[in-house]
Amino acid sequence: MTDKVLIADDEPNIVVSLSFMLKREGYEVLVAPDGLQALDMIRSDPPRLVLLDAAMPGMNGFDVCEAVRADPGLSGVRILMLTAKGRETDIARGMGAGADAYVTKPFSTRELIVRIRELLA
């Protein structure tokens, strides 16, 4: 059975690269273009992992992450936060919101895939 991974990012080109990478690794890929849709999709069909962009319109990644962590039914969902803001406070906030890992953009796909494998192991 393949693991389902949700990509929540508002930058189409980043979605293209992430989904190509994940499909190549054999994961099933879902895409949400903003925070609200991401939360809907997580709730209706919980994926194993969410690649969550921090800065999204509608509802930002931190809020999505907090909402997921507040829902005991979604405790199995791993969350990897992606953000273009590399400030310490952002990392702290991401971890505070309950993310399992935090990767800053621009990321190396090689490293990212290692992190993803770890999270899904």
């Binding site: 080109n13 990478m21 590399g86 953009k105 621009p106």
Partner: peptide
């Protein structure tokens, strides 16, 4: 500064990721 960084990093992310993917595939 934070916004500029963000705006710079976003295209850089795509460029780096896609280039790496092409190299690795």
């Amino acid at each position: 500064m934070s916004s500029v960084t963000h705006e710079l990093r976003t295209p850089l992310t795509s460029i780096r990721a896609l280039t790496e993917l092409m190299l690795d595939t």
